[in-house]
Nucleic acid binder design. Sequence first.
RNA 1: GCGCCUGUAGCUCAGUUUGGAUAGAGCACCAGAUUGCGGAUCUGGUGGCCAGAGGUUCGAGUCCUCUCAGGCGCGCCA
Length: 590
Amino acid sequence: MRKALAELIHARLAPLVAEFVPNPRDFFELQTTPDPAKGDFALNAAMKLAKPARTRPLDLAQKMVAALAAETAWFTKVEAVPPGFINLFLTDEAITRELGRFAEDAEMGLRRDGRPETVVVDYSSVNIAKQMHVGHLRSTIIGDVLARVLSARGDRVIRQNHLGDWGLPMAMVLWKATPLLRDLEAKGLDPARELSLAQLETLYREATRACEAQPEAAAACHDILVRLQNGDAVLLQDWRTITRLSMREVYRLYEELGVLLTQEDEAGESHYRDSLADTVRQIRESGHLVESRGAQCVFLEHFKAKDGSPLPVIVQKSDGGFNYETFDLAAILYRIHALKASRLIYVTDARQALHFAQVFDVAHVCGWTKDPGRPVTLEHVPFGSVLGEDNKPLKTRSGENVKLADLLAEAVERARAVVEEKNPDLPEETKRQVARMVGIGAIKYADLSQNRNNDYVFSFPRMLALQGNTAPYLQYAHARICSIFRKAGLPADGAFGPPRLGHPAERALALKLQELPTAVAAVAAELRPHTLCNYLYELATQFTSFYDQCPVLTCEDPARKQARFFLCRLTQRVLARGLDLLGIDAPREM
RNA sequence: GCGCCUGUAGCUCAGUUUGGAUAGAGCACCAGAUUGCGGAUCUGGUGGCCAGAGGUUCGAGUCCUCUCAGGCGCGCCA
C-alpha cells in the first residue's frame, strides 16, 4: 500500500517542484500521523521544499493539495494545515483494495526492489572445545534474524560461522587431549563416543592454569600450535576429532534454539590457514605494509595508541605467526572473491568495534572493496552485553559463564509452569511442545526486542510476562486467532472475505497489517531486529482491541462476518510470518 | 590521555541514522467494562526541566559544541 501510494504521490507532486530540486522523491516520504484526526498519512514535503521553491510552506502545501484533490479513488480528503503539513485521508475502498492485494501476495510484500545482493552474515562464531554460554547468545540470535530477513527480502544470503578453531586455545586443548585420545585408541574406543564437550572444556581450563604457572607448559603448547599450523598429520587428525565432537553439541543447541546454521556454514580460522601468507602479500603489494618492532603492520590514520603514537594493525607477528586480524582480512578476501559477496555483515559484540573498524579500514585502503567490479560494503553490527540483575555481566554464583544449555532448560521449565497454570487441560505432549516454543521464544524475543546497542538485563520473569512486549503475548494473540477458526469449524487457511470496513477498529487493523513490509525493510536497512518486534507488538495490540470491539463468531451480518474472518486470518498470517522471521515458533494453541 | 557506546515516567524500554504536529508503550498505582467469540482481555487516568548548558533552525529527544555521570576499548590473546 505504501508503495502504491508513494508512486501516486510522486507522479502528481514531482512536476510541481521538479525545477527546484533534483530528486523530488526524497521529499515525499509518507509519514504516520500523530492521531487519526490528522488523517492516515501525512507529507511534510511542502515545509522542506518551500525554501528552494522560494515560496511559503502553506502556499506550496495548498498547491500540492490541489494536485491530489482529483484522486477520489484514494482520498476522501486532502488538507493543508499550518505550518505546512499535508494530511491524507484514505477511502475505505483504497484500504480494502490494497489489503486484498497484500493478502494475495505469497511473499507478503517483503521482496525488495532492485537487484538481489549477495550478503554474507557472519555470526555465532563459537569456539571449539568450549561450551556455548551467554556470550554467544546475542550474536547467534541477532545474526540468525538478519539472515532470515535479508533472505526473505530476496537477497542471496550466505551464513558464515567463523569458528575459533586454529589459535593458541586450540593448541592448549590438544596438548591435554592428545594423550587421552591415544589412550582411548589403545583400548579400541571411539573418542567421539567417550568424550564430551564438557570434558574438553575442563582440559582447556587445566591447560590455561598450567601455562600460567609453568613456562615449559606454555612452550609445549606453543610448539603444538606451530606443528599443527605446519600440518602435522597426527595433530591434524586429533584436531578434526575434537572439532567434530565439539560442534556436535553446538548443533544440538542450535537446533533447540531454532538457529539455521549448519556444518556447511562453518568457515573458521582454519579455513583460511593456507591464505594467510597470501593475504599479507596482497597488503604488501598495495604498498601499505610496514615493519615495526619486527612485526608486519599497517598504520592507519585516525587510530592512536594510549600514548598518542600511531597504532598499528599487526597482520603478522614478529615470530612469523598470524593473529586474528589476519584471519579476518583473509576472510574478507574470500568472501569478496570466492563467495562474490557485495555486503559483509559481522554480528559481534560492541567491544570488538575497534578491531573491525581497523580491519575494514585496511580492506578499504588496500582497495579490496572497490576492486572486484562491484562496490563492497563492510558492516559491523555491534551489540551490548547480557547483564544479570545486579547490572554486571551475567555470571553464575561461582563467577562462571552461564551455560547456554542451562539457560534454555530453565526458560523451558519456567514456561512449562506458566502453561500448567494457565491451561492445565492441554494434553501432555502439547504442553511439552508449547513450553519449548514459549521458553525459547521468550529468550530470543527478549534479546531481539531491545535496541541492540544497549546492554540488557536478563530476567526470566520479564521475558515470560504475559502482558507487554514479550514473546508469550504475541504467541497468545496468534493462538487465540487459531482458536477462532477451530471454534468456527473452519480451516485456518480457508478463503475469507472480501475485506470490508465498518468499524474504526477494523480500519485501524487493516492499515496496521499492511505495514509489515515497512517494518521488515527497516530491519534490512538498519540491521536492527527490534523494529520488527515493535511492529508485531503494535499489531497484536491492535488486533486484541479489534477483537474486543468487533464480534466475529457471533456476528449477525454474513458479509461482515466474512470480512472479519479475513482480518483474523491475515493477522494470524502476519504474526506467524513475523515471528518466523524472528526465528520464533507460533503455537496454534497454548 | 584518546576513542566508541549509553543517559527519556518510580522501574524496564521505544522514539535519535533521514529534525516535523500534543514525547509513546509495558510494569506498578488509581478508576471503569464484563457471566467474556481464549479475562493470558479491553477502555480511561495519575506520572516527563528527554542528564546539564550553549548553539543551528520556521521547528530539536533527534543536528553541532562543551560539561557531568556510567559502561567498554586502546602494539603482537581471540
